[in-house]
Design a protein around this nucleic acid. Structure first.
Lengths: 232, 232
DNA sequence: TCAAAAGTGTTTCTGCTACACCCATGC
DNA sequence: GCATGGGTGTAGCAGAAACACTTTTGA
């Protein structure tokens, strides 16, 4: 069933840089799949695939994500469109890259979809060589995450719905690669007033249990509307 | 000469949001073309066109820009890729949008390219209705410009190579939509040390002539390298 | 009782804000 | 000589940074 056009057209794909954060060892992780077929058979690559004709690009990205993680309602934003000649040995392929943030706790063990031999979380400082220009894409995603995390509250997307202040601090320290002062960090967040104190505490920890908080999206949007600026 | 593929493929285009700044009346301008053919014949639209098969996407954007403005070496950055179903009545068309910044002084009168009846600068607060989803694209470009101008020195791209401090201040006031204090603005810039004082002054002004400055790109990149952060 | 992390205030210092007058030039 | 924008310094204040000890819990 062939499709014919008057002028040549590139193929259109999506690729996803999926981040997760493990507070226990302060490591930022990326989801990779191992390719089942050539080109780059057995190489690790970003999850992705072709955009269907009757499907929005972002929908395609969500579909691919669901295949690998069985998760829906994931935080997802467009990152950049890669279309240099020769980036795919099969011919002209333009790829719209997205980045996604998911709470590691909720993420089940990743599933190898039909086009993958395996799917696995990799710590961003222990990455294997990647297929195509996927390393460029991944690095750009990382850069975007680091840039955006400090003036938009997207970091919360990497934590469970309820989290301790120390986990939040560990997240920021990891993503930004800095050391933060506990008291100043808490003071700043308290002043912003976008955290809701719950009555719950950590369970089964071998030390004093930390109180858990939730991010107050409503309040945040209201504050934004009034000209507030989230920062650090 | 038809081209045939096993699966259907969207057409790929580029669209450019081209900004310029007129310090004399503090207005931010956008370049629009008037469409020569259907769909949206006679409507105003962003300059753009199809991406050739053997051409990088950014190269396509530069080519389109050169056709309308006869300028090369323009500041150009990818903005977002628009691909919702139904955004073009002719069928599935995915458009990679770019935004460009050019110094109004250097820009000659825009030229209507082959696909355009006219090309004209519009002040962003007096825009005509636009074809396709081009208003969305334009607004996103504006948002990006406003967001980026405060922590990356891209504003200089909208000024001549040599400019007065007042022009620079007017630019920031216009883009950000705020009023700035002259002394504080100058103090901040002086402290950053990314401006080179020239020995030249404004010509033919009916008042004291302002000294002209240049942006020091070298110095800026060196400072960035040392962990400096441009802001405001 | 020990280990491990949670939780909590004050002081210092730096950087932002607010603010007004004289200067040079063209008409 | 007048109108127009160019150019310059200081004082007060708010917010960031630095910093150490007590509390709770499980083992």
């Amino acid at each position: 069933m062939p499709y014919t056009y008057e002028y040549p057209r590139p193929a259109l794909t999506v690729d996803c840089v999926v981040f997760a954060f493990d507070p226990s060892n302060k490591s930022l992780k990326v989801l990779l799949i191992q390719r089942l077929a050539d080109p780059f058979k057995d190489s690790w690559a970003l999850p992705g695939g072709f955009v269907e004709m009757e499907e929005d690009i972002e929908t395609a990205a969500k579909r691919e994500l669901k295949e690998e993680t069985s998760m829906e309602n994931i935080f997802l934003e467009q990152l950049y469109t890669f279309g240099t000649l020769g980036r795919d040995p099969r011919g002209r392929v333009v790829s719209v890259a997205y980045y996604a943030l998911i709470p590691l706790q909720k993420a089940q063990t990743p599933i190898a979809a039909s086009d993958a031999k395996a799917a696995k979380w990799f710590s961003i400082d222990k990455l294997p060589p990647l297929a195509f220009d996927h390393n460029d894409i991944l690095q750009l995603g990382l850069q975007r995450l680091r840039g955006k995390v400090r003036y938009q509250p997207i970091g919360f997307e990497l934590l469970d719905e309820k989290f301790s202040l120390s986990d939040l601090q560990r997240l920021y320290e990891t993503v930004l690669g800095v050391q933060l002062d506990k008291r100043n960090f808490r003071k700043k967040l308290a002043k912003m007033g976008v955290l809701i104190e719950t009555d719950e505490y950590q369970q089964n920890v071998p030390h004093r249990a930390a109180r858990l908080y939730r991010f107050d999206k409503e309040k945040y949007h209201q504050l934004i509307h009034d000209g507030f600026n989230f920062e650090l």
